[in-house]
Amino acid sequence: MTYQNILSEIKNGTLYITINREKKLNALNKDTLAELADAVAFAQENPEVKCVLLTGAGEKAFVAGADISEFSSYTPEQGEALARNGQATVFDAIENSRKPFLAAINGFALGGGLELAMACHIRVAADTAKMGLPEVTLGLIPGYGGTQRLTQLVGKGRATEMIITAEMITAEKAERIGLVNYSVPAQELIVKSEEILNKIKQRAPLAVAAAISAVNAVYRDGVNGFEVEIKEFGKCFGNEDFKEGVTAFLTKRAPEFKAL
């Protein structure tokens, strides 16, 4: 697929995805979501990709929300279909990815932009970034998992306040309440993000995937997360990464894990 709205490049095992609509503050329109869905699927299938760094073009915005003009005349049925499709192909696909996604939040992350960042497994924000879910100012609510993931990350009270006041928060506050992992000077954003991903790339990819699956099970209704952990733990004993990791440990050498 040829991309018009995102940039995609693999470097040293990391797939860099940049939402490239700087003049539109990287707003998510249908074409951009379709390209993101394709890039996420590509990451899962390509053995060269060990992890993904997701960011926005320019210095102003990570993603400043959805392209409102595209859905301003939607019916309730069309609105529901929009949310359901986006959830399945982009947001849930990222959260359930076997490969870690890190959001490098370089500027405004609003509405669908914050929802996109929250779908990622790790978030690093520039100290100049601001975040929020302003949908109620449009007579809407978040539709790409915002009500669920924000509550999981910061708790019911803070999530409810952010959503129904539509107030933005700073990167410093986002770090303090657990919405992002780190707030760093803007010039250090990519360096810090790459530092985290480089650590992950040294670990056993099959174990990393198993850990993501087990952590995600915490939030699945009707699923016993302890049981998921036990099964994932057991499966690790049957893969080559475990054999390589143990052999390397016992022979006092660095492990050489295979790509997922």
Rank of each mutant, 00 (worst) to 15 (best):
N239K: 08
K258V: 10
T147S: 12
N12K: 12
F257E: 04
I164Q: 09
K99T: 10
R123P: 02
I190G: 05
E194T: 06
K201G: 08
G139P: 07
A57S: 12
S213L: 12
E240K: 15
V215G: 08
V52D: 01
K60A: 13
A27D: 07
A129K: 08
D92L: 09
T247I: 07
I163Q: 04
V215S: 12
R203I: 06
V40Y: 00
N29P: 05
K192T: 15
L15D: 07
K30Q: 14
T147P: 03
V63Y: 06
G234V: 05
A211Y: 11
N46I: 00
P142G: 08
P255D: 06
I196V: 11
E9H: 13
N198S: 09
V154N: 04
Q152I: 09
A27S: 13
I17G: 01
I122E: 09
Q4K: 14
Y219A: 14
N216I: 01
S8F: 00
Y74V: 07
Q152R: 15
S183G: 05
I141C: 10
E77I: 09
S69W: 06
N26A: 06
F71P: 01
A61H: 06
A39R: 00
F62T: 01
A27P: 02
K231Q: 10
N5R: 14
G58W: 02
L82Y: 14
G132V: 01
K252A: 13
G13P: 06
E256W: 04
S69I: 09
F226D: 15
E9V: 07
V191E: 13
V136A: 03
L153F: 11
G86N: 08
G111C: 15
I105W: 04
F101H: 05
L133G: 06
L206Q: 13
L153V: 10
G145F: 01
T247A: 14
A166D: 04
I68H: 11
E22S: 09
D38S: 04
E229N: 11
E227P: 03
F71L: 07
V191H: 09
V228R: 03
D38G: 00
V228D: 03
A129I: 11
A66H: 06
E195N: 11
G65V: 05
Y16C: 03
E244D: 07
Q148M: 12
L206A: 10
T55H: 04
A103Y: 03
E9S: 09
G178M: 10
I94Y: 05
R220A: 13
N239V: 14
A64L: 10
K243D: 10
F91H: 02
P134R: 08
S213H: 13
F91S: 01
E35P: 01
G107R: 09
I163K: 03
A88H: 09
E22Y: 02
A211C: 12
A57V: 00
K50D: 12
I122Q: 07
A217D: 08
A207N: 11
T147C: 12
I17V: 13
Q152M: 11
P255Q: 07
L33K: 01
V246N: 02
T160F: 13
G113T: 01
Y144R: 04
N106A: 05
E172S: 12
K258E: 14
K173V: 10
N85M: 08
Q87L: 14
A119Y: 01
G86L: 03
L150A: 10
L189P: 06
M162S: 04
Q44Y: 00
A166P: 07
F226T: 13
L7D: 12
L110C: 05
L53N: 02
A93L: 06
A207W: 11
A39F: 00
A37E: 00
G178Q: 06
